[in-house]
Design a protein around this nucleic acid. Structure first.
Lengths: 152, 152
DNA sequence: TATTGTTATACTCTATAACTATA
DNA sequence: TATAGTTATAGAGTATAACAATA
């Protein structure tokens, strides 16, 4: 892998000989490919990436306020409302009255939400295993996560 | 870097102890961070990532049809119309009548478009150098690009 | 005054269908 | 029949402002 290879290998008839950077471009391409894979795997569960991450966070941090979960995921609290409402309508989460602060909603998984999350997690783990395989093993995965962390 | 660290380090009060995968999540986070950096750097040029990639491709492949440039970048040809129109209105590109096929537009940079692109490239190269620094050098960058390619 | 959840709204990006003129 | 460019449109995702209830 050299930095002066063509940016594009999608269509061999269109190429660049640029020596400019391409980290952002390749990063975006890889992210889109992985997300596309996620979408197709989670299609039958009718679960979007953001919804899955919310369930994971609530499962690991029951009782938190909407603002806390939303901020941890980089979701604006205004947009989190619709997301949480959808999960609540599906019976996966509950918005209980918070003890102490009457403004806040304490988020919890319902029993069926916990079961659903366990199922979704197994899907995710299978996908992750496939990605690790493509990367060349767990050591390569750790290498990738380390490099990504340096960009964040 | 181990795989059973918390997914979230944004807010220490919200964490997961999950052993599930996080490649997609970290990939998305890193991609957003890099794109955010791109947006702030290219803000004064009033240039979006997609517009920049189009200019680069036209610069390296003058005379190509809209469809060819669009497909190479994963942009729908319907959405490419507005994008190309904006670049043309700014005097950066030209849509010339294609020789042979009267349906097609042959895309070219204008002289000022070429000068503008050279300027934008220098911005991009500086950003890329900064990213390489954060990664720990060119070897690390190549390592990252190699790993990303395996995911695509 | 500040914060929580909420509504309304707008802007970008992306996706599809359908049209026209050419091939 | 198929392709190139275009238009219209719809759906996500994301952003801000403003409000009522509560702190």
């Amino acid at each position: 892998m050299s930095h002066d290879l063509p940016i594009l290998d999608i269509d061999e008839t269109v190429r660049t000989g640029g020596t400019t950077g391409l980290i952002g471009y390749r990063l975006r391409r890889a992210q889109l490919a992985v997300f596309q894979r996620f979408l197709s795997v989670f299609d039958e569960l009718k679960l979007r990436p953001a919804e899955y991450s919310v369930l994971v966070l609530i499962g690991d941090n029951p009782g938190r306020k909407q603002t806390q979960i939303a901020e941890a995921l980089g979701i604006k609290r205004a947009n989190f409302v619709t997301l949480a409402h959808g999960l609540e309508e599906r019976g996966l989460i509950e918005r209980r009255a918070s003890t102490g602060d009457k403004r806040a909603n304490a988020l919890h998984l319902t029993p069926s939400g916990a079961a659903f999350l366990a199922h979704a997690r197994s899907f995710h783990e299978a996908m992750e295993a496939e990605l690790i395989g493509r990367l060349g093993g767990p050591a390569k995965r750790d290498q990738l996560l380390d490099l990504l962390a340096r960009l964040t």
